[in-house]
């Protein structure tokens, strides 16, 4: 914080030093980025670790990633070490180094989600749990839970009771849901303390010369600037639906954020915090740059307006004039 700028926000009881988080899937378990000489995890509000399941998963065969216009299509298939290894090998390490750590969990059925959540909550060593009900890259479970309000509610409810109030529960929503606001509301009624959105958009890429899909899994999740308008609309829809329902539940917005201005757009649409994913691929230190850029934008606004409230990031949340 400098020059009287207030960048800290609270999401479901977790105090974040700034609203910029690194999204699940691009920062592994928070340890790989330590290879970078200039890595400063403390410059972002938090890290969301790789989606973790009950048992280790080896993921999908390669090719797992392809660049498309303005975006990236991926189909990793939730390759992960499993919850027990996460608890044993990762959580005791200084994963966040002074920044919030959010675990992301996934499962094949409701019982698995609850079991993973229960084990994580018993182990501790993190700040919140994000429930992935929206992964497009696993055959069973994943996105199916995120497109149907009843199934989404069932998963969130099971996780919430497994966690039993020890950690905030964040439900991560899929843009593939026909009515994302209905899914979001169902998650909130089932006990979600926050919602994050959007996960990747299902898509495919084709190699015309070989007459084959590029990804071995055929279907992948599209991310990057190409999906930003989709994501902004979803955040706005869910924000307004929650407001109409009288639910004061924070949103974490994501989808194609590259610059501080992108991040502020999500905040104006109704997000209390944001996550950056794909952009870390071309700039692994982009989280820090976006956080610093946001701070500068607030200072600029204050210089123009003279209003103290322009220095406080929380005053921008949902402040879209429409």
């Amino acid at each position: 914080m400098s020059g009287g700028v207030r960048m800290n926000v609270e999401v479901a009881g977790v105090n974040l030093k700034n609203p910029v988080l690194i999204a699940s899937g691009v920062c592994g378990y928070g340890l790989d980025f330590r290879r970078l000489a200039d890595y400063r995890p403390e410059a972002v509000g938090g890290l969301v670790l790789k989606g973790t399941t009950l048992k280790p998963r080896e993921g999908n065969p390669p090719i797992r990633i392809v660049e498309t216009a303005g975006g990236v299509l991926n189909s990793i298939g939730l390759q992960n070490m499993g919850v027990d290894a996460l608890i044993r090998d990762v959580l005791p390490q200084p994963v966040g180094s002074g920044t919030a750590v959010i675990l992301n969990i996934a499962g094949h059925n409701v019982e698995e989600y609850a079991e993973v959540a229960q084990r994580c909550a018993a182990a501790g060593g993190f700040n919140a749990l994000e429930v992935n009900i929206s992964c497009p890259n696993v055959a069973k479970g994943g996105m199916a839970f995120g497109t149907d309000p009843c199934m989404a509610a069932e998963v969130v409810s099971a996780v919430a009771s497994a966690v039993n109030g020890r950690f905030p529960v964040i439900a991560k929503l899929s843009p593939a849901a026909g009515d994302i606001a209905a899914v979001g509301l169902a998650c909130v009624e089932a006990g979600a303390d926050a919602l994050s959105l959007i996960n990747t958009v299902p898509g495919m890429a084709i190699d015309a010369r070989r007459r084959r899909p590029v990804l071995a899994n055929v279907v992948g999740g599209l991310s990057g600037p190409a999906i930003k308008p989709i994501a902004l609309l979803r955040v706005r829809q869910v924000f307004l639906a929650l407001k109409r329902a009288g639910k004061d539940i924070p949103l974490i917005g994501m989808g194609g954020i590259v610059t501080a201005e992108d991040a502020l757009e999500f905040i104006l649409a109704g997000a209390t915090a944001v996550q950056i994913g794909t952009a870390t691929f071309y700039d692994p230190l982009i989280g820090a740059r976006v956080a610093e850029g946001l701070e500068e934008m607030l200072l600029d606004n204050y210089r123009c307006s003279g209003r103290e409230t322009d220095l406080d990031i929380s005053h921008y949340v949902g402040a879209l004039e429409d």
């Binding site: 390669p62 090719i63 991926n74 390759q79 870390t280 692994p284």
Partner: peptide, 17 residues
């Protein structure tokens, strides 16, 4: 050689068996 995302081990895109 494999198609890569992050290049630093985090994203698990560039795998071989």
């Amino acid at each position: 050689e494999e198609r890569m995302g992050c290049g630093i081990g985090a994203c698990m895109a560039c795998v071989c068996r």
